[in-house]
């Protein structure tokens, strides 16, 4: 049996920004770098869905920008079907644009308010020449009904729709080019629980019926568990734990994963002791593990040695010197 082809592969991707010298423009201190991504390895196979979780400032959105080719890594390689994303040209580039669709966090902001829903959803069809002009309306009506919107909505503008409906339009537009991968950035955050539940159910149905791969950025572990079979937990530009979602969430190895789990509200349980502090600035990181400053399990060697992401169990990797389960492979 052959393994399914990998759609995305990130090989030790680093994205660092130059943020000038300490003390301002004319200061003589050393130049400082902000490493938004620091050695990220990730792969996404066809038909698979991966959740990327972490607090704000952990590098989730930068990772997404690299995956979409909106920004090029300063080191390492980001590959789509084994080709460098930022170097794609001609037919490869067209194919990438057609196969990778994005659902933005701010759905309303991502849709032109002066275009009707018909034009918004048909734009990918027109751009890639995917349907005849005579079929345009029927295709859009089919896409709208797929996301649970009535075809009459075609003539309307986004200003007339509710937040949940706008997200559905954004999903319909993303589906228009029959993509292989849906990339979603917090696609269900900031909504009522009822609307969120409807959209999550829709996304899961799409996943099952169309076999589309999904890369889902979220800060909600419940959403990750519901939609994605694999999870990658990020902290300060690194993946600190990755594996099958059910394994990671039932027995987290990294103290940060456990802290995220504890912080999620659970019915009738007293509010757990919250993780102290906030995610620090990614400029001029101290040596050692980046989570050591907030970690309740931190020991002396954590502040001296920077743990690498190593396989700790089948399908499982974590970057921790003193994991909460088993022993790391290098011990």
């Amino acid at each position: 049996m052959s393994t399914p082809p990998e759609l995305f592969r990130l090989l030790d991707v680093e994205k660092a920004y130059d943020v000038g010298r300490k003390g301002g423009l004319f200061a003589s201190g050393p130049r400082r770098r902000l490493a938004a991504l620091d050695g990220v390895r990730l792969s996404l196979k066809a038909g698979e869905s991966v959740a990327i979780v972490g607090e704000s400032g952990s590098g989730k959105t930068t990772l997404l920008r690299v995956l979409l080719g909106l920004t090029s890594p300063t080191d390492g390689r980001a590959l789509y079907r084994e080709k460098d994303i930022t170097l794609l040209q001609g037919d490869d580039r067209d194919r990438f644009c057609r196969e990778v669709a994005m659902i933005y966090q701010d759905a309303r902001g991502s849709l032109n308010p002066r275009m009707s829903i018909l034009d918004l959803v048909a734009e990918p069809l027109d751009h890639h020449g995917l349907c005849k002009p005579s079929e345009r309306r029927d295709r859009v009506a089919a896409l709208l009904s797929r996301v649970g919107l009535p075809p009459e909505m075609m003539e309307r503008y986004t200003s007339a729709l509710s937040g949940g409906q706008v997200r559905r339009v954004a999903i319909a537009r993303a589906l228009a080019s029959a993509p292989a991968v849906l990339v979603a950035d917090e696609a269900v955050s900031g909504l009522d629980v009822s609307t969120q539940a409807q959209l999550l159910k829709l996304l899961r149905d799409l996943q099952r019926e169309m076999g589309v791969s999904m890369l889902f950025i979220t800060h909600d572990l419940g959403v990750a568990a519901y939609l994605c079979e694999r999870i990658a937990v990020m902290y300060l530009g690194r993946i600190v734990e990755t594996g099958l979602t059910k394994d990671v969430l039932s027995a987290p190895a990294h103290p940060y994963t456990r802290a995220l789990l504890n912080a999620a509200p659970k019915f009738f349980e007293p509010i757990a002791e919250p993780l102290g502090g906030e995610i620090p600035s990614p400029i001029d990181l101290p040596p050692g593990c980046r989570f050591a400053g907030r970690c309740p399990e931190a020991r002396d060697d954590c502040r001296a040695r920077d743990p690498e992401l190593v396989a700790g169990a089948p399908n499982r990797a974590f970057a921790c010197l003193h994991p909460l389960i088993g022993e790391p492979a290098f011990a």
Binding site: T195, Q196, Q198, K201, D220, G222, V223, A225, K266
Partner: peptide, 17 residues
């Protein structure tokens, strides 16, 4: 309450919109 996602939620039964 049925719309609240918990870690072991298998199926969601959302309220109609």
């Amino acid at each position: 309450k049925a719309c609240v996602l918990e870690l072991d939620t298998e199926e969601l039964t959302p309220l109609p919109s």
